[in-house]
Design a protein around this nucleic acid. Sequence first.
DNA 1: ATAATAGGCAACCAAATGGTTGCATGTCAA
DNA 2: TTGACATGCAACCATTTGGTTGCCTATTAT
Lengths: 104, 104
Amino acid sequence: MDEVFKALADASRRSLLDRLHAKNGQTLNELCDGLAMTRQAVTKHLAILEAANLVTTFRHGREKLHYLNPVPIHQIGERWIKKFERGKLTALSELKKQLEKRDE
Amino acid sequence: MDEVFKALADASRRSLLDRLHAKNGQTLNELCDGLAMTRQAVTKHLAILEAANLVTTFRHGREKLHYLNPVPIHQIGERWIKKFERGKLTALSELKKQLEKRDE
DNA sequence: ATAATAGGCAACCAAATGGTTGCATGTCAA
DNA sequence: TTGACATGCAACCATTTGGTTGCCTATTAT
């Protein structure tokens, strides 16, 4: 879980996921295209995404194809974000109560 | 948005949010309690959470009260995670197709 | 008034991060 | 078979990060 959060913390990596979301199964060079980064930098980002299981790859000849795996993202939504949605109204009303208390 | 992702990338910070979720409106010292970190380290984490608008604070006398703001978390769920949920089945079936292609 | 309490500020440090360059390897096409 | 192409590996670098310690300020309680 921590690896996924860490992987998502970087804007470049999120944009790589975006690109794979737009077009799945791209090669490394395809993913580098138009980015203001060297290929090696992209490789590192992809390795982190792969370690977090957000991207699955396999070789096809001399090319390495990258596939988006949306499962970890979905899990974050289910296991983590949903927890905080429940408390939403309570939290805000408590805050409001406190803010009003300030003027006493 | 980037600030929120970055703020959520650290396990200590997520645990602080958890604590606030369990009990809202805690003071700094309350939040430090039981953590294997100095107060100053916690202060820094809280400052990052505050900058990302995940935590709202105000002073009450000599105490600083911390309140959870679940809105940014909710937005990540809405604006970011939901986008990837749509492509889920497609992505997996495409991957399966490619994996089968390997044996040709 | 004074001591204890709650928090803030700043300097410092080691390790992690995001990036680079240079070179090596494996695969395909002419 | 040889050159071009796709990727991998490793060393190196600057900056950011997560943490520390030491000291200062503000508020409360005795």
